[in-house]
Design a binder for these strands. Structure first.
Lengths: 196, 196
DNA sequence: CTCAAAAAGCAACACTAGTTGCAATTAGGG
DNA sequence: CCCTAATTGCAACTAGTGTTGCTTTTTGAG
């Protein structure tokens, strides 16, 4: 007797159709993004979407976790300043693309939707954690003292970019990313993120 | 024949009742905040609210503009580092209080509500502009070179605080505010915000 | 090929936000 | 005090989101 999940066949097809439809609609701005519209674009009944994902945020979260599983190349050029600059440019590219819209959509519904909050926070935490390697490498090279707070530094690096993405509606250009990286580098070198 | 607005009497009473009701409900978390609930708490019909403010965001924006009109004491201690630290602590206090919730609520609905976006941006732009005085004073004292980008520096100072307020759900404690200020000071002193 | 479980479709429904038309109230000049 | 315009209250209505019960289709093991 067949009991349990059903990973093959139509289920996967529906799942894929919904996710790609959501991706497509996301490009036109998430302001008009709705479960019913996604279902319609996917050629699927809205109940299927609701039953599987519960929420619009559920779909978006699923979409974001696809990006989360992608491997990102953490810069390792042998110099802290260059690494941080590369990192800032990397974050910038992510923000100006599709994941940027996803994060915006999820972050803005985070206060009202605990699951959405968890998804964004999880994504950022993971990415930030990976990025800490840049600081750790600098420590290993002796560029920074042992005990430097890598997490705090990465947070400081990313924050201005996120502020522009989510609140201030100003362009996140390369110049801006570079200057943000330079600011973080200067702060690190000045010992701001050393343990007290 | 009486033509025009009607600033006196019941109109103002209703307006005040709605705003104070909104303020009160905001303290219990804006997740459950809704126009109907506010109207009910104010002892007013919801149509009155909709007609006057159009939106929930309209009410919140009105509320925020009350704070915007309050005078904030920009620190001027004679030292850049101390000024920025005071400033960071000032921002922190604003965020942990009522205006913090207001800004969160408005910022999260900004992507879907252009008016809300405008209100938050206007508020922050104004506050940031005032804060630039701190950098300008340092320039006047000769602590920083002429032409230093005050706006960019203040943005860098505020960003990490806003990131925690809006996305990362970690405490915005004094220690964090102080370190953020120190990072910005270091970047300023290293000449990161000087014109190229 | 058969069949039971699982998933999807369908349609009706509940609920909430926001709108509209009309009646009742109120401000404030004459 | 009277009268007109502004404002509010009230109730019905629209639209869109999400839910539920049931039927139909599909999967995959035997």
């Amino acid at each position: 007797m067949p009991v349990g999940q059903r990973p093959g066949g139509r289920s996967t097809r529906v799942r894929a159709a919904v996710l790609t439809a959501a991706r497509g609609l996301l490009a036109d701005g998430y302001a008009e993004l709705t479960v019913e519209r996604i279902a319609q674009a996917a050629g699927v009944n809205k109940t299927s979407v609701y039953r599987r994902w519960t929420d619009l945020e559920g779909v978006l979260g699923d979409l974001l976790s696809q990006y989360a599983s992608e491997v990102v190349p953490i810069p390792d050029t042998g110099d802290l300043g260059t690494d941080l600059e590369e990192l800032a440019l990397l974050i910038r590219r992510g923000m100006t693309g599709e994941p940027g819209e996803l994060i915006t959509a999820l972050a803005t519904s985070a206060p009202r939707n605990p699951r959405a909050a968890q998804v964004v926070r999880g994504f950022l935490t993971e990415r930030f954690r990976l990025a800490e390697a840049v600081v750790d490498h600098a420590i290993a090279r002796g560029e920074l003292p042992r005990g430097t707070d890598a997490g705090a530094a990465i947070e400081a690096l990313g924050a201005p970019l996120f502020l522009r993405l989510l609140v201030v509606d100003e362009p996140i250009d390369e110049e801006f990313a570079r200057r943000t990286a330079a600011a973080t580098t200067a702060a690190l070198r000045a010992g701001v993120f050393e343990p007290r």
